[in-house]
């Protein structure tokens, strides 16, 4: 399969009074058609910003975003408008991502209306079909978001994203606001839709177990940089970067006999306004060497598409 989307040296700085917030700092990756790239990291690592940059909900400071070989980072307004049919987003919060003053039917049908697809009647039928596709009864057409629970609201958000039959969807923490039993339903729905509609996902999440479950490849971000990226299972069986190891070890597991060792990082994430020199993780790294604070380790292939940015990993 070819790369559906390819990101090269993507940078996003947000200017604030104290300087620039280095939200995304020189990030490159590619996603193959029909696959899922999981982007994990803690709050403030730039994973959500990356997702929004990809579909140009925010403008990149520099870098290229190639969609089927076409650079969309510099696309004009007209091209961008047409691109909306191809790329969609599912949001984290099923409460704030739906307009409280619009019925479910209106919300799902809005993209169709914007792109002038079909007559009003045909659009309503399309909405019914979409609702069934995501497991919502079309009876709920006239319901308002506040009348639904979180799981069903999230299904509405998914139906809206699917309405234009996109190829690529950014899933921005789509299950982290949901109850565990509902989370699993939505994850399964996303997987089934991926199979039936040949979708490509960028799956942004802080939850490693969820990302592992749904992704083909995983990229771990720390302070605006990708520190490790590898095929999903490889990352868990052969974790190389100390930050990824810490992240993995920190996940509490509902089991009596945990196999992994405890590995607790000290301190918190430094400010993204003046990120640490050299390797951005060196302030918390248990393996820190002299070179780490001076030189930034490049993201290099360690075989089998397993990329790591660490001086220690040989």
């Amino acid at each position: 399969m070819a790369d559906l989307i390819k990101v090269e040296n993507l940078v996003k700085y947000f200017p604030v009074a104290a300087g620039n917030v280095h939200a995304v700092d020189d990030v490159s990756f590619a996603i193959k058609e029909g696959e899922t790239l999981g982007l994990v990291g803690e709050s403030g690592c730039g994973k959500s910003t990356t997702g929004r940059l990809l579909i140009r909900l925010i403008e990149a400071t520099s870098g290229r975003i190639l969609y089927r070989g076409r650079d969309i980072a510099s696309a004009d307004k007209k091209t961008l408008h047409d691109m909306r049919k191809e790329m969609q987003i599912i949001f984290q919060d099923p409460f704030s991502s739906l307009d409280p003053r619009k019925s479910i039917g209106e919300t799902i049908g809005k993209p169709l209306e914007i792109f002038g697809m079909g007559s009003k009647r045909e659009r309503e039928e399309m909405v019914d079909a979409l609702m069934e596709k995501v497991g919502l009864s079309p009876r709920l057409f006239y319901k308002y978001p506040h009348e639904l629970d979180g799981g069903r609201r999230q299904r509405v958000g998914i139906a809206r994203a699917l309405s234009l039959s996109p190829s690529f969807i950014v899933c921005d923490e789509p299950v982290s606001a949901l109850d565990v039993s509902i989370q699993a339903q939505i994850l399964n729905l996303l997987q089934e839709l991926q199979e039936t509609m040949k979708l490509t996902y960028l799956f942004v999440s802080h939850d490693l177990s969820v990302v592992k479950h749904i992704s083909n490849r995983i990229a771990v971000m720390y302070l605006g940089k990708i520190v490790e990226s590898s095929p999903s299972l490889e990352l868990f069986s052969n974790t190389l970067h100390p930050y990824s190891q810490a992240l993995l070890a920190a996940v509490p597991i509902p089991k009596l006999d945990r196999k992994r060792e405890r590995f607790i990082l000290s301190g918190g994430v430094p400010s993204p306004i003046n990120p640490p020199s050299g390797c951005r993780f060196h302030t918390r790294c248990p393996w820190k060497m002299d070179i780490c604070s001076r030189e930034e380790p490049p993201l290099t292939d360690r075989g089998g598409g397993h990329f790591v940015a660490c001086h220690k990993v040989k």
């Binding site: 803690e42 405890r262 990082l265 000290s266 994430v269």
Partner: peptide, 11 residues
């Protein structure tokens, strides 16, 4: 809290 911070607090 974030996972790595959660681990610290739980500990």
């Amino acid at each position: 809290l974030d996972v790595t911070i959660q681990a610290q607090v739980l500990e």
